[in-house]
């Protein structure tokens, strides 16, 4: 909160002077810096974010960071402005990173149980027929990997090959299965 003090914020004061005063503990000086830049930072953040509400949150976070790190900001002209935009740009980047990293879970109620697919008349027969059309080796690999829940290590032991070869064989078998299903 801005306390009564001997200097009043002056619109003619430069950012450097205001920053120096805010480093000395003058809250009004920092309030004046916020007043100068909040609209600009908001506008900058609005370009490239989905909603103005997200921009509002990022603006507050940016200024909060600026206040916490005000002692690290250089006293050179334009340094405060550059630093502010830089933090806002980093926050915008992090926002998008988080958005894409968030797992998109479906609500459990909306996902049908796996056994439901097996109950569809003819599904089991189709899978059996497709497996029969594969070579014996490929069929054994797929059955071991998918139906007997064997890991790649188990498949490699069953086929007498290395793990990397087993991985390649599973991939080939899957590709063959896809070809048959597509045809």
């Amino acid at each position: 909160m801005c306390q009564p003090r001997e200097f009043e914020p002056d619109i003619l004061e430069t950012d450097v002077e205001l920053l120096r005063r805010s480093k000395k503990g003058d809250q009004c000086a920092f309030e004046e810096l916020v007043r100068r830049y909040w609209q600009k930072i908001f506008g900058f953040l609005c370009h490239g974010l989905e909603s103005p509400q997200d921009a509002e949150d990022l603006v507050s976070e940016t200024f909060l960071d600026a206040f916490k790190s005000r002692f690290k900001i250089s006293d050179k002209p334009e340094a405060f402005k550059r630093w502010l935009y830089k933090v806002a740009a980093v926050k915008k980047k992090a926002y998008w990173k988080d958005k894409y990293r968030k797992p998109r879970y479906l609500p459990l109620d909306s996902v049908p149980p796996v056994c439901q697919y097996l109950d569809i008349p003819g599904t089991v027969a189709v899978i059996e027929a497709v497996l029969e059309s594969l070579s014996e080796k490929q069929k054994n690999i797929l059955v071991a990997y998918y139906f007997e829940d064997s890991k790649l290590k188990g498949v490699s032991q069953a086929t007498g090959t290395s793990v990397s070869t087993a991985c390649r064989l599973v991939k080939e078998a899957k590709e063959r299965l896809n070809e048959v299903l597509d045809s």
């Binding site: 909160m1 916020v34 909040w38 507050s60 200024f63 909060l64």
Partner: peptide, 8 residues
């Protein structure tokens, strides 16, 4: 809001 968040 920003000022309130910073200075409480």
């Amino acid at each position: 809001r920003i000022i309130a968040e910073i200075f409480g």
